[in-house]
Design a protein around this nucleic acid. Structure first.
Lengths: 194, 194
DNA sequence: ACCGGAGGTAGACACCGTCTACGACGGCTG
DNA sequence: CAGCCGTCGTAGACGGTGTCTACCTCCGGT
């Protein structure tokens, strides 16, 4: 038998992650999670006193997943900073597109306990990776490094969000998001020389 | 007596707008709206068969409001395109900051009936204003106009979103959003010459 | 005068988050 | 070994929600 079968808490979170990926944030109810974990509707309360706590735990899992993917990308793409940054951006956009429900949840600050649960801190290392690359690529005439990195992140995030919503395809006439990504990187970091 | 007091439908939407501005999207329930309009809980159903329909109507009001503000800005700021675009961007960011709940709702495509109700189309004129200004400012080496406009919009939107969430202030070390806005415009449209 | 539909009421249903009291069980203390 | 107490899960209740349905009430057209 499993010597270390996951505890109920982990099973609840896993069920929640599965549910949010499959059906989106609104499908994640405490009772449904309990049902999927095969426990009574009151059981989750032991680990997640409130709905927000559960959603926050799920979102944290999402951040961990995204961070892992980015780090994996950084491990694989061992080239010049610009190439690495491009790969990072692609990973970000791909994640948002492939895990729309989770991505949406991750940035629903109104649903998350962003304060107490150090949810923001969970996303900081990710930003640090980006900021580091940006710092290497920054030209003297550019904005200060934190501002430059922030603006670039916002741009990435906006593309991910609006693209997922279907607004950008509509507005830009269905150009693929790769064109947007290239334009964004060129804008903030200068055109590539090829 | 009022010859044309607003019908129930308008009163419901007005109550919803008020509620979403004051308390956020999650506070907007059909029953609460009905209560505020002084009608029975089943009454809204006559006009909004489903919750989504009500939220969509409220969001449409938000888009109308934002569009009106942008147009007002365009009417007032009658200068060179770059200045006008900057003013437009500020209007966008200010709206998001000042009407956070509404802004959030407007881009919650999962909550909105974005397909049938032509919600996207409601936002297209707004994008057109931006696209027009961008087209005037586009340099020959820039990306095609629609892509450039899309990227810039995404950047604006990302700033609005992440700023409202509090992530960007944290990441950039509390630089104000004006620095981000300037950096963004400079990046996409070239630095101003001053 | 009648009738028919539009517009609002009221009750029911299932589901939800939350609270509370309760039972089972296992490890520590005496 | 007996007893106790804290941990973990159960089960029921409450108020709130969206949705459905049956009803009622009035007003306009024939």
């Amino acid at each position: 038998m499993d010597v270390d079968e996951p505890g109920l808490r982990a099973r609840l979170v896993a069920a929640g992650v599965d549910l949010v990926l499959r059906e989106g944030q609104s499908a994640v109810s405490l009772r449904e999670i309990a049902r999927r974990a095969g426990v009574s509707h009151g059981a989750p309360r032991r680990y997640f006193p409130t709905h927000v706590d559960l959603l926050s735990a799920i979102a944290r899992e999402g951040f961990a997943d995204l961070t892992a993917r980015v780090e994996q990308t950084m491990r694989v793409v061992d080239a010049d900073p610009r190439t690495r940054l491009t790969a990072l951006a692609r990973t970000y956009l791909d994640y948002a597109a492939a895990h729309r429900g989770m991505f949406e949840l991750m940035f629903r600050h109104d649903l998350l306990d962003s304060g107490r649960l150090r949810l923001r801190e969970t996303s900081l290392p990710l930003f640090a990776v980006l900021a580091d690359l940006v710092a290497q690529l920054r030209r003297p005439t550019d904005a200060p490094a934190p501002v430059l990195a922030g603006a670039l992140w916002a741009n990435l995030h906006g593309i991910a969000q609006l693209w997922a919503w279907g607004s950008l395809p509509l507005a830009t006439g269905a150009a693929d998001d790769d064109a947007l990504l290239r334009a964004t990187l060129d804008a903030h970091l200068g055109p590539t020389l090829t």
